[in-house]
Write a protein that binds this DNA or RNA. Structure first.
Lengths: 360, 360
DNA sequence: GTTGGCACTCTTATCTTCCGAGTGCTAATA
DNA sequence: TATTAGCACTCGGAAGATAAGAGTGCCAAC
């Protein structure tokens, strides 16, 4: 059964009103608000049909109507007016966002906080990086007991660590190790850093002091930490301002799920760039999210890193505003973090360079 | 008026029971539980006096008694049995802690999560570092468009950044800049990095490409980020499992305060090493904490860094267990992060070394 | 197809009633 | 003088009763 234009209008009115008030909405209210010139009795007939079709439901006889997940779905797909900010709002948001983005350390913690503040819902951010490799080793000799490991990574970042040794090493040894590591440990993934490789390197270097072990464990640490996706949740407390979470148990359940790092969405439905995905109530796979909704956007954080920002709230969520804000934020982040620095041409071809160190 | 031994026992019994049950405790329950051989009528007389003295109060006539802040204070100071874990508990805790500490990245986020998990209350961790300075600059030349900045800091750590330039520089320039930065920017604090200094360095280096600006802004970033105290709150949701926070508004208020980075304790009352401080209800200065309690321990994170771990809960908090656990955790952290690496002798005298780079 | 009218339903708020835990007091006891 | 048993009293919370109101469904009329 096709859904008539008027039904759509009425459904939209119900959803809008319910999002605003969190109370079941009655025929009279719709007759007054929505600009369709007909009486509440007519609306009632339509409402009854919408219930029969599964878009609405009543908490009990003689209560107003409330949208079902199916109702929200239709609303999100077709009905809601894609919120374009008015010029002033847009400028204001832009200004605020720019200001924040200035200070933003690009840590996902900041991103998630920002999203939460912007939308007033709990937010989760996470980044998934491609596995990185080390492109180049440098070992900087400081003094007989101290040197610095510097790794240049395939994601165009550098990582370093200061190492203090209980015993002395000479510069020769450091130099030799750098050469060996550049030869053996570059362009390989985490799982290629095997005990066998480490042992053989140690032997080649005549390293009896365990320096090889120190360096390779740093390598492992860097490789594994930058490949692991990191998630950060913030603003859980904002849940409590939503009437549907006045029940502390319900709130507690969801908040625990979120802080426990629960996934917001199944891996197969990651939104592409510039896309905002909405999962409504039972559309979520996680049991804990079955009566909440999730809005997710993704952004390009450069260096093969994609970031995800998601927001969780009751199914009665202001989808339009939230989606618009997330898209805005994601765009801003992509602009700021992504396009910025293109990897210089030809870099990859020149990378196998023996590491060296300072010769003061 | 001095407080008799028996009164103390009774008070302790009231607090213990109230901590367990969260319900006002009556004379009968005490007569049965506490091993003092007297009847409930006697207890009633004593209770009445304890109320008069301000250690207890009744929510209303004909209800049991509830400890006042003053009552808790006496309890914490004198009455509660300092919880020493039984051997099994201790070992278990130790094992769990060690396991966690292995994986612990010493980030305060981890510390706070750990504290929260351990105590089942929201926890906040924060570190206050002494201001760091740069001890040594190295600039690693990678290719004409790329170099790596490596800073060795006074807190015995190293920081690095990969810089891509839109235009080419030659190795000479990089070398010159390293020398200049080592001469001008080492051993100085954040506020000594003035625009004047930067401008004069830029002039000395004949740097028309803004490289000086890039390096010095990285220096500023590092100096300011590592001097700023960082706080991290986690486990806010655990509040909701406490019956006193079943009121969502109350819970919301406190949680917002916590996530907003609200201070847990006045700066003047930082606990010393190995000390656990307890602030009960109105003893807190922050309005939002007036009817909650805070337990705080501090640990030595090495490198002139002190860390603080605090836990927030209702005044009806299991002070004994929480204090013991926090002390345990703080000790473990001090051992692991603090004593570990003593700065090598004489390091500070040798530090002014001109930075150099690789000469492949 | 639309509308006004009306009886009906069901929830929510408010008010009563009732029960019992726990007290305070008094008088008896050790 | 300290302790105890006994008892009347208080008060909050639970359970039930009542009233009000919002909203529906349906019917007959337009």
């Amino acid at each position: 059964m096709a859904i008539s234009e008027r039904k759509k209008k009425i459904l939209a009115a119900v959803v809008d009103a319910y999002i605003r008030t969190a109370e079941p909405v009655g025929s009279k209210a719709i007759a007054e608000s929505a600009g369709l010139g007909c009486s509440s009795a007519t609306i009632r007939n339509e409402l009854a049909e919408l219930v029969a079709m599964g878009y609405l439901e009543q908490p009990h006889t003689s209560a107003g109507r409330v949208p079902t997940a199916m109702g929200y779905r239709l609303y999100v797909n077709e009905l809601m007016e894609k919120q374009r900010f008015t010029i002033e709002e847009g400028e204001d948001l832009n200004r605020r966002l720019n200001q924040r983005l200035q200070e933003l350390d690009d840590t996902i913690g900041d991103v998630s906080r920002l999203a939460s503040q912007l939308t007033n819902y709990p937010a989760m951010a996470l980044t998934t990086r491609e596995a990185v490799t080390v492109l180049r080793f440098d070992l900087i000799y400081v003094d007989a007991n101290t040197f610095i490991i510097v790794l240049m990574l395939s994601d165009h970042s550098a990582r370093s660590k200061l190492v203090h040794l209980p015993i002395s090493v000479d510069e020769k040894m450091i130099r030799k190790l750098a050469t060996l590591f550049n030869a053996n440990f570059t362009h390989i993934g985490e799982d290629a850093v095997t005990p066998v490789l480490i042992a053989s390197t140690e032997r080649s270097a005549d390293d009896t002091m365990g320096i090889t072990a120190v360096i390779s464990s740093f390598v492992l640490e860097v490789l594994s930490s930058s490949s692991a996706p990191v998630a950060f949740v913030s603003g859980e407390n904002r849940l409590l301002s939503q009437p549907e979470f006045r029940d502390p148990d319900k709130a507690h359940r969801l908040m625990s799920y979120l802080s426990g790092g629960g996934q917001l969405l199944p891996a197969e439905s990651l939104p592409g760039s510039n896309e905002v995905r909405v999962l409504i109530g039972p559309e979520n796979v996680a049991e804990e999210l079955k009566d909440s909704s999730v809005v997710i956007a993704s952004y390009d954080a450069g260096d093969n890193t994609r970031g995800l920002i998601g927001v969780v709230g009751p199914t009665r969520m202001d989808y339009s505003a939230v989606a618009a804000k997330l898209r805005f934020l994601a765009d801003g982040l992509s602009r700021r973090l992504g396009g910025g620095e293109a990897p210089p041409e030809g870099l990859h071809n020149k990378l196998i360079i023996k590491g060296d160190f300072n010769d003061e």
